[in-house]
Computed example of a mutant assay.
Amino acid sequence: MVIAGTVASALLVAVFPVFSPLAAQTERQTLSGSRVALYNLVGEVRIERGRGRSVEFEITRRGADARQLRIETGDVRGIPTLRVIYPDDQIVYDRGGERSWGSTDSRIRSDGTWGGDNGWRDGRRVRISSRGNGLEAWADIRVLVPDGQKFDANLLVGELKAYDVDADLSLDAASARITAERVQGNLDIDNGSGSIVVRDTRGTSLRLDTGSGGVTFDRVKADDCSIDTGSGSVTGIGAACERLDIDIGSGGVRLAETSAGSISVDAGSGGVTLDLRQSPRSVSVESGSGSVTITVPSNFGATVDIETGSGGITTDFPITTNRFARRELHGTIGDGRGRLRVETGSGGVRLLRGN
């Protein structure tokens, strides 16, 4: 059935349920609109490039109680949305010992959604556990997203993966492993706890946020790159960002072969290593504890302000100093066009000459 109208109400649905006591239960559905959303409490979501004009879903219900899951579609706050409804407050996500991660609690609205502005207090409280009593059911979903689409994937527990997609993606999870590779488009990832891996992506905006868990971003290109993690290391190679901002509570930062116009790193604790392949306009690094090593091209020029609470300062560059103390260095390198500022509570600072 096709319902014509505005973006918010454009909706196409086709259902082909398969029920077998021995096989997984699978169905397909399709939603149309310039922006489409998915909500699924538990399971694996894999996003791939679609060839049609609509977003296609292949839903496989799993677990001993898979029959009890319901699939609903319709507009939610003006966006065509597919929701997997779990009719229990206790959900067991047990994949034969493959994972043992404890439990996650959240509030779920009656329409199967959660979160949003001031929305985390709405709905009933649901607990998802790796073992114990409750509804043993989850949904694994393959999503085919056409070029130019905007798609939001919301998952509480499991895995989120996106491969070979030419679309703007928003990936949100409470506790999951999230991977995005070969994505052409803006990418916004928010993970409560769990790792984030992004490779070979290109877009105007890249935002990666995790409460706890490591972040890896390799060969990404964007105007704005923002990375925020409460705890966990940040590593990357071959990133090209006009503006690169990294905020990390605890954990090291190690970037190799990086190009950026401006770089800002704020690390509560952990060492910072930056290997920069082009001369940036500005570099700002603050570290509560941990050494800082910055490698810049040989033609780098900047005003320099380096301070360390404890630890030495070394540089490969001749610096015209205007103020120098035991743990402070202020001056100019080359033409002084750029700006370099480093401050660390404890740990040495090294400024190295690259190629």
Score class of each variant (00 low, 15 high):
286 E>Q: 14
283 V>G: 00
292 V>Q: 04
289 S>H: 15
260 A>G: 10
284 S>V: 12
274 L>A: 02
283 V>C: 00
271 G>Q: 04
283 V>K: 03
282 S>V: 05
282 S>G: 04
275 D>R: 06
268 G>H: 08
283 V>M: 01
296 V>T: 12
297 P>Q: 12
296 V>L: 14
268 G>D: 08
258 T>D: 00
280 P>A: 09
277 R>P: 07
266 D>T: 13
286 E>C: 07
279 S>N: 12
273 T>V: 15
259 S>R: 14
274 L>N: 05
281 R>Y: 12
261 G>V: 04
294 I>N: 02
283 V>S: 01
276 L>S: 02
294 I>V: 14
273 T>Y: 05
272 V>D: 05
296 V>F: 05
284 S>E: 07
260 A>Q: 03
272 V>A: 08
290 G>I: 08
273 T>I: 14
260 A>F: 08
275 D>Q: 05
288 G>N: 03
295 T>Y: 03
281 R>I: 13
266 D>C: 06
269 S>R: 11
289 S>F: 09
281 R>Q: 15
264 S>Y: 12
266 D>E: 13
268 G>S: 10
266 D>A: 14
287 S>Q: 13
275 D>Y: 04
261 G>S: 08
284 S>C: 02
280 P>S: 09
258 T>H: 03
274 L>Q: 05
275 D>A: 04
296 V>N: 13
273 T>K: 13
296 V>G: 08
279 S>A: 15
288 G>T: 11
295 T>A: 11
260 A>D: 03
280 P>Q: 07
267 A>C: 15
285 V>W: 01
259 S>Q: 11
265 V>E: 09
272 V>L: 09
258 T>P: 01
268 G>C: 11
266 D>G: 07
271 G>D: 06
272 V>K: 07
289 S>I: 15
268 G>N: 11
287 S>W: 10
260 A>C: 10
274 L>D: 00
295 T>R: 13
288 G>H: 02
297 P>Y: 00
291 S>P: 14
284 S>P: 01
277 R>N: 09
